[in-house]
């Protein structure tokens, strides 16, 4: 599947003002690759992920993933897209604290119509895959940041989505945890799956097939990254635009 982003502009309301973190972005990527969205805080990485995940509606532009016009989805079709096409690994892990690791992974499966027994087996298998086969009955509060992150990845993979989005996946991890998550994310970016990671952590550069640096237009002093990987800079406009309407889903 191919991801195509054309002339994307994102706006949302914040503190009484309208923020436009991304303006006129063009980007494309194909399944089987890992794309790193790199840039400082506020450059629009997370907003871009939100749009790809069908959570934020862009102000202008088009997002197409496979044959789905993501920006045009509404209601049940949008819910189905979020459920079956996208897996999201959140920066704060966002596991449900009252549920065990297994149950957290089962949530999208059961909501996706998978029967309970099959859902349990699939969740077990995913937790095994992320190295947590012996922690299925533990609640998030009894797990380290790295372990929680791996549960979150297992949950994101539950329905085997073709698009995996990860927002600052290493933000709350120690160096050992970072290594494990990097290896896992790299492994996931194969076959029919496209992995898009938003981060400002340059330790992730080596695992990327492609690095897209989101740089505020106002920043003139663009420094060069020392990386053997192909990297492109996409200038985005991070600006407060007072009085403009925001559109969020």
């Amino acid at each position: 599947m191919k991801l195509n982003i054309r002339h994307l502009t994102i706006e949302y309301a914040s503190g009484g003002s309208v923020v436009r973190p991304v303006s006129g972005l063009d980007l494309s990527a194909s399944s089987g690759s890992l794309v790193l969205l790199l840039g400082p805080s506020g450059c629009g990485k997370t907003s871009l992920l939100s749009c790809l995940g069908g959570i934020l509606t862009p102000k202008h532009g088009r997002i197409r993933f496979g044959d789905v016009e993501v920006d045009a989805l509404k209601g049940a079709k949008l819910t189905a897209y979020r459920r079956h096409m996208v897996g999201i690994v959140f920066q704060a892990f966002n596991l449900v604290p009252s549920m065990t690791a297994l149950e957290n992974v089962m949530v999208p499966l059961c909501n996706g119509g998978v029967r309970r027994r099959k859902a349990r087996a699939r969740a077990d298998s995913l937790l095994e895959q992320v190295g947590l086969g012996d922690r299925t009955d533990d609640r998030p509060s009894r797990m380290s940041g790295g372990e929680q992150q791996r549960v979150a990845i297992a949950r994101a993979l539950a329905l085997d989505p073709p698009l995996l989005l990860a927002d600052e996946p290493t933000a709350h991890l120690d160096s050992i945890g970072v290594e494990g998550v990097m290896r896992l994310l790299r492994e996931l970016a194969d076959g029919d799956r496209l992995v898009v990671i938003a981060t400002h952590d340059e330790r992730l550069l080596p695992i990327a097939d492609r690095v897209v640096e989101l740089v505020p237009k106002t920043t003139r002093d663009l420094r060069e990254h020392v990386t053997p990987l192909p990297m492109e800079r996409v200038a985005v406009q991070a600006a407060f635009v007072a009085g403009m309407p925001a559109s969020t889903r």
Binding site: T79, Y81, R82, G87, F90, N94, P108, N111, A156
Partner: peptide, 16 residues
């Protein structure tokens, strides 16, 4: 609120 936000973001319907 965060749980519900995550549920919604991962395709759980409002009805659920």
């Amino acid at each position: 609120v965060r749980d519900f936000a995550v549920f919604k973001a991962t395709g759980t319907s409002n009805a659920t």
